[in-house]
Design a protein around this nucleic acid. Structure first.
Length: 895
RNA sequence: AGGGAGUUAGCUCAGUUGGUAGAGCGCCACCCUUACAAGGUGGAUGUCGCAGGUUCGAAUCCUGUACUCCCUACCA
């Protein structure tokens, strides 16, 4: 790769040569550090902790890019910016990964025993626990690494215990026998939220139950016939005339010959199936409710592996699916299975193992939600916690309204073990922050800690304050909390609003008496280019690290930020990424051009404070400063409004379409001989780099380090906006902006004629610029060189229009200035091409004129529309009419 | 079933108080013009899902409708 001698920059931007080095320098200099005590205003974000043994996926990359943008922007804007990283022990996920690994060696966790198994997971954690942090560094995450926390760290564990004990003492945590969702492969309870409902093609079976003492049958319809082994009643609607006579009678459950009662409850839908419901209170959530109200027997027919147990008689030992098949066969043999129809219905699946979830009656720990939900609703209703986009607050509030007690125990070994000790003597529980040696009730020493661990989300719910040292009361902990709690933003996907966001609010309010964050920024999911969810099984997932290797972290970040629209999912496209890689290269080369031409630039003693004298500045200098002011304003407004893509797009357009396409081109002839232009170039480049930094930190820091005008480092320099950059921006000039816009349009008109008439760029065109406006003449004259250079013309005549015979003519308007661009075509082109070009324009103008005439002849429009709207239309009509006359004349001359 | 989001150029999507539709990519033509071919210049492309309504004027507001997606709940 060739290097420019003056600047030492490669002629292509090569992220591999830059990223790791720049990141190491930032870290070494301590730029990511935040301070418990500071006179700067605080700005804090807690990173949603990724799975400690996981790896960075594309969704994290998006999530982190947004957070890093906010953090870097605020850090540069004078805030004490704190981004706290962390990792999650991810109970089920991590345990199953390690179990799978052991299985390869033929070892199960049970043969290993709890202690050794947990040691194995810790080994695993030590091996892979840093991987995700390394990957975050690749992305450029500017976290305060000193504050990194793991959910099983001692401090966090103390917080978990304190919360558990406190809630237990307030009777908000209890142990009880309830029907819960059970994952067979994992042998643990899972929460409602961990159940995924999927449409499944199955069958519905119609089974006859013989009514005792008669030859009649009651027919029930069921999708899970094997559960009949646990039936303890049949239920009909009390007003259902078909079944009045059977209410109170007994029927016999086929196959196991249990006598059960026929009961009546309005819960039954008469229209559905046969109108008779079989009630299996221990294996169905609806039946559970009926079982409770009617005081039915609860017969558990499954064991922890979701195989049928001793209550299932001859079916004991079978898996659920096997039992279903066998039961059907046996019923068929007895003539009691009278119908079997295909049936599509939704079935709960364990989101971790994929297995069908079985409702299972078991002893679990629960957290009451009733008292907590109210305050958690109010903070969102009042706007103390704001969701962005706002519509998610509805989703949140709806869930708070239907919230049920949270099953917090898991039959796993990896996690926070429940701090409750069961007493063998009195059967009571001792719940304590420190390990007890005897029962708190009876004093017996025969106590044993609960085997279960807490749901991972329990510790996650405390994350905003447990990471800040709560409940420890040392100075560091207290000051951290005082400065950074509540945090400024929580950035996450909508998939964990219930799991996590809601529970952090509940816990924050209960234990910190304040919300955990002010704004919840919800972003969409990253999908593949076809809009499908990315997943390993579909083979469509994209590894962000591969993308960084290929295109650079900055390009990846920019491609996210430029297409981030208010909470919507975004489709990932490598092609688009390539486009932003090109943009990075464009920036690099613009810098390379500037630096080359600033080689002899004399850095003023005042450094960044040195301003050029307005009268030494060229019109182009003043023009670019005016455009810079526009973009600084737009970017500031967009970032404040969380419209990140607007900010990214504004920068993209300014840099590519104004700075590169025009300013650099305009200044090429004069820059090396004009100290004022050099100074402006240095200033504008410096600002471009700073403005871009939060979006693409690596390339900007690298360029910044080579700038003649700079401070210590880009990452901690000031983020420019129209308030703090007033003095420089004041050198812009709106009047001159309009003038240069006119010059741009003249050049574009010339290029347009050349392009459409296919005149080779090698041909220098003759040019006449006709206008009778003295001001316009002056502007055109002063900028002849630029027009000639960028329009590739020679012999420019300014003033009279002269003989238009065999000339291409275009009219250019900018504000009140009108110029005719005239190019003699004799000997250059086939005139037919020009005739076509003119006719095309006439057609378009005809349409416009018809539309405008129609509009302006409508009296109601003139009455109702705003004055300026009417004025603009009138002016447009006038111009169009003038132009069409001009073109028609030109057409005549070609005939 | 209930709730939410969407439908705009070939593709991905913008379009903030209603005023003659925009970007990037792709496409076509010409060009290695000394920052960049990962580039330059020019060009083509849309009944803004469909049907009504409000209005002088609707991609934008209202009603209905079709299709897509997501979430929540679930009837055995």
């Amino acid at each position: 790769m060739s290097k420019d001698q003056n600047t030492n920059l490669d002629d292509r931007y090569n992220p591999q040569n830059v990223e790791a080095r720049v990141y190491a320098e930032w870290e070494k200099a301590g730029y990511f550090k935040s301070h418990d005590q500071s006179n700067k205003p605080p700005f804090s974000i807690i990173l949603p902790p990724p799975n400690v043994t996981g790896f960075l996926h594309i969704g994290h990359a998006l999530d982190h890019t947004i957070q890093d943008l906010l953090i870097r922007w605020k850090r540069m804007s004078g805030f004490n910016a704190m981004w706290l990283p962390g990792t999650d022990h991810a109970g089920i996920a991590t345990q199953s990964v390690v179990e799978k690994d052991l299985k390869k060696q033929g070892i199960t966790r049970h043969t290993l025993g709890r202690e050794k198994f947990v040691d194995k997971i810790w080994e695993w954690k030590h091996e892979y626990g840093d991987r995700i942090y390394r990957q975050m560094r690749r992305l450029g995450d500017s976290c305060d690494w000193d504050r990194a926390t793991f959910t099983l760290d001692e401090g966090v564990s103390r917080a978990v215990r304190k919360v558990f004990v406190t809630l237990y003492k307030k009777n908000m945590i209890y142990k009880g026998l309830k029907l819960i969702n059970w994952s067979g492969p994992l042998e643990t309870a899972i929460s409602d939220l961990e159940v995924e409902h999927k449409q499944v093609k199955a069958a519905i079976y119609h089974i006859n139950y013989p009514v005792d003492g008669t030859s009649a049958f009651l027919t029930v319809a069921t999708t899970r016939p094997e559960t009949m082994l646990g039936d303890t009643a049949l239920c009909v609607h009390p007003d259902d005339e078909r079944y009045q006579q059977y209410i109170g009678k007994t029927v016999t459950v086929p196959l196991i010959h249990r006598k059960i009662k026929v009961i009546a409850d309005t819960y039954v839908d008469r229209e559905y199936g046969s109108g008779v419901l079989k009630v299996t209170p221990a294996h169905d959530f609806n039946d559970y409710k009926i079982g409770k109200t009617h005081d039915l027997e609860f017969i558990n027919i499954l064991n922890k592996k979701t195989e049928l147990n001793e209550n299932a008689g001859p079916y004991q030992g079978l898996k659920v699916t096997e039992a279903r098949k066998k039961v059907c066969e046996d019923l068929k043999a007895l003539g009691l299975l009278i119908k079997e129809e295909p049936h599509v219905h939704s079935v709960g699946h364990c989101s971790r193992s994929g297995a069908v979830v079985e409702p299972f009656l078991s002893e679990q720990w629960f957290m009451k939600m009733d008292d907590l939900a109210g305050p958690a609703k109010r903070v969102v209703e009042s706007g103390t916690v704001r969701f962005e986009p706002e519509s998610w607050s509805k989703v949140y509030l709806h869930w708070m309204n239907i919230i049920e007690d949270w099953c917090i125990s898991r039959q796993l070994w990896w996690g926070h073990r429940i701090p409750a000790w069961h007493c063998e003597a009195c059967q009571e529980h001792t719940v304590s922050e420190t390990d007890p040696t005897q029962c708190a009730k009876c004093g017996s020493k025969n106590i044993k800690q609960e085997d279960d661990v807490l749901d991972t989300w329990f510790s996650s719910a405390l994350w905003p304050f447990s990471t800040m040292g709560w409940p420890d009361e040392n100075t560091h902990s207290l000051e951290t909390q005082k400065t950074f709690y509540p945090t400024s933003y929580l950035v996450t996907g909508h998939d964990i609003i219930f799991f996590w966001v809601a529970r952090m609010i509940l816990m924050g309010l209960e234990f910190k008496k304040d919300v955990p964050f002010r704004t919840v920024y919800i972003h969409g999911l990253v999908r593949d280019s076809k809009g499908q969810k990315m997943s390993k099984s579909l083979g469509n997932s994209v590894d962000p690290i591969d993308m960084i290797d290929k295109y650079g972290a900055d390009a990846l970040r920019f491609s996210f930020l430029a297409h981030l629209f208010s909470g919507k999912d975004l489709k990932f496209s490598e092609q688009r990424l390539e486009g932003y890689r090109n943009f990075m290269n464009k920036i690099w080369n613009a810098a390379r051009f500037a630096l080359t031409n600033l080689a002899d630039f004399k850095v003023p003693a005042e450094g960044l404070k040195a301003l050029p004298n307005a009268k030494d500045m060229s019109v182009f200098d003043q023009w670019i400063v005016t455009k810079l002011a526009d973009v600084e304003k737009k970017v500031d407004e967009a970032l404040e409004a969380e419209r990140f893509s607007d900010a990214a797009t504004a920068l993209y357009q300014f840099i590519w379409n104004q700075f590169c396409d025009w300013y650099i081109e305009f200044t090429k002839p004069t820059i090396t001989s004009s100290p004022a232009t050099q100074l402006v170039m240095a200033h504008v480049l410096n600002r471009i780099v700073r403005l871009l930094h939060p979006f693409c930190p690596f390339i900007t820091e690298e360029i910044y380090s080579k700038l003649p005008l700079k401070s210590e480092a880009c990452i901690i320099d000031t983020y420019p906006n129209i308030r703090n950059d007033k003095e420089f921006l004041a050198l812009g000039n709106k009047q001159i902006e309009a003038e240069i816009d006119l010059i741009k349009e003249v050049i574009t008109a010339i290029r347009n004629i050349r392009g459409e008439l296919r005149i080779s760029p090698a041909v220098k065109l003759q040019l006449r610029l006709a206008t009778n406006n003295a001001k316009a003449i002056e502007i055109l004259k002063t900028n002849q060189t630029a027009i000639s250079l960028l329009g590739r013309t020679e012999n420019i005549a300014i003033g009279d229009e002269g003989n238009l015979n065999k000339c291409a003519v275009s009219q250019v308007n900018s504000t009140d200035l009108k110029v005719k661009v005239i190019i003699p075509l004799e000997g250059l082109v086939d005139f037919n091409e020009e005739v076509k070009r003119i006719q095309k324009t006439i057609e378009k103008l005809d349409k416009d004129i018809a539309l405008l005439t129609n509009k302006l002849s409508n009296e109601k429009f003139l009455q109702n529309a705003d004055e300026d709207v009417v004025a603009v239309d009138k002016e447009l009509l006038l111009q169009s009419k003038e132009q069409i006359v001009l073109l028609k004349e030109a057409l005549e001359r070609f005939k």
